[in-house]
Nucleic acid binder design. Sequence first.
DNA 1: CATATTTGCGCAAACGATTGTACAAATATC
DNA 2: GATATTTGTACAATCGTTTGCGCAAATATG
Lengths: 345, 345
Amino acid sequence: MDKKGRKRGVTIRDIARELNVTPSTVSRALNGSPRISTERKEEVLAVAKQLNYRPNQLATSLRTGKGKMLGVMVPTTDRSFFSSVIRGIEEEASAAGYSVMICQSHDLVAKEKQNIASFLGAQVDAVLASLAMEKSKFTHYERITEENTPLVLFDRITDNISVNKIIINDFSGAKKVMHHLFEQGYTRIAHLAGPQQVALYAERVRGYKAALAEKEIPFDPDLCIECTQILAEGYRAAQKLMGLAHPPDAIFASGDYAAMGAMQYLQERQIKIPEEIGIAGFSNESFTSLVNPSITTVDQHSLQMGITAAKLALSLAESPVQTAQTTVLEPSLIIRNSSKRKPEP
Amino acid sequence: MDKKGRKRGVTIRDIARELNVTPSTVSRALNGSPRISTERKEEVLAVAKQLNYRPNQLATSLRTGKGKMLGVMVPTTDRSFFSSVIRGIEEEASAAGYSVMICQSHDLVAKEKQNIASFLGAQVDAVLASLAMEKSKFTHYERITEENTPLVLFDRITDNISVNKIIINDFSGAKKVMHHLFEQGYTRIAHLAGPQQVALYAERVRGYKAALAEKEIPFDPDLCIECTQILAEGYRAAQKLMGLAHPPDAIFASGDYAAMGAMQYLQERQIKIPEEIGIAGFSNESFTSLVNPSITTVDQHSLQMGITAAKLALSLAESPVQTAQTTVLEPSLIIRNSSKRKPEP
DNA sequence: CATATTTGCGCAAACGATTGTACAAATATC
DNA sequence: GATATTTGTACAATCGTTTGCGCAAATATG
């Protein structure tokens, strides 16, 4: 601590003084410059270790413009999907010597703006983000690219902004669910769609419709209910569906929480799952394997998505001149009891 | 971008040049120094806005030694408890103009060390951490305090290191569960204890024993099984318990996942819950309200814990000279169907 | 009116690291 | 042995901000 109560660490100056050389020599030695003799390097390294020297990242970043830090923004960390993605990003980043700054938007544009300001202020080398659900004009994201900081969008993306994107094939995921439901003998399948301003939910609806079309089943608007993918809305949607003149014999929800809500309603009504009605969700939320019956869902390979996104972000951070690309990951169907009414073959 | 391809932002120099003053004047104006005239301040502010100036946090931090950043380390973000704590920390921090850097230890000491190095390198103003389960000597945590960075431990703490701590009253939480189970008429209550090197699990065992003692029920070692609090271990523990000559009539698990595992085993065995056996967990994990029957558990006021921890950390960051204190929060029992076998009064 | 005080701002030195250039000594070349 | 080349360090500027000190002009005080 100096006289002002601030903490003071060991600096290259201290090492330099110890060895009667200049800070520049120490710096070069530490960074393995070829212009420094091997013996000097060893001396410097020894003293550095002895003094427990730790480079001040801030100073290095300020000088070099590279902060060795990735900014990650997700709507929330307590969904298993996002938390896995983060884990993937972290693994990849820390392997490359980068640290990760995580922020949550709580699906609020205002918070997004705030977080972006934080990222930019902290001079992160790249930003990885999954968009908030709130409708917006994405101008705050443009400020990132304006400052020449690489931006990678994952999962919740938009076409309104031209950057690198990592998504899963939501269209295909939805179709896989539908094929499975057809295979199990369900024919009148309802869909609990997510907010359609979010691209991935729109994609899933597209997959739903495409699967119907393949079977030459006309699309029935009554069976496709748009709702935020939370438990209560799934419950209400199921209620509505069961009140129809021709209720569905299966419900495919665009999110696991809505699927769960629907299931709760059906169970309260003593409707047997999967015998009378089949249920499927999306995201492979951890509870889907715990509840009874376990819920059929779609795994999004979240860890892999994080790794892929991080790799891309890191490469962009090192060499910023690259053209925007979109990587599409293939999701996997996970069949569980909520939709299995045929015996195993 | 300069010639080397690095991004260059607007600096106070640019503002200064525009107004024909020096950077120091701009800096003072921006920081509201009383030594600058009101008109100058307005001019500076106007130009700053016009040029879209954003202070370089790195430079400020380097100069002042304060990074306006909190480091948060948790074992994992995908437990609802930790993710809520983080949310609380974030809210409090961002209200105070601080940003938050989140790292996960995955319960590995090696990762803890790495993360601490990241924190220290990033010159965070304070570190908030919940310990990994792995046994260790905590010397890596001491490096934080050695560098005079405030450290606040929450939830998973240790007595081996003298710092500020925020915990919930695990002893009392466990007793509350036990009282409730007694009240419901359960008398032979088993406990699935967590790893005893983790203080909070030891506390819960202490609460379990204390409640037994109050009822003058002798402690039966056969009924207290230590296991990591994951689903599979809970399942196995229940299996073991039901194989006893005198099996229990209730199982109180120190964690919700273990409780869930136990419940799955019992359900497979067609044992009725809560009629034949009562179940209770700990942590109020989100799935506990979704499964059937819903699981009685203990809420740890995670959001409040985060807020409290952040407040403490922030105050320490501002004025480092304070004596270590421990704050204890009171948990709440949440009674659900897995342990409710008496009709509501 | 002369001296003291305030007011408003500039100068320059930090913070800790990196890096282009310079420069002496050691080695190589003829 | 004189000159050219390499080798190992030092010097000093720089990244963007903050801040102690100094200094002039404006105002206040006697």
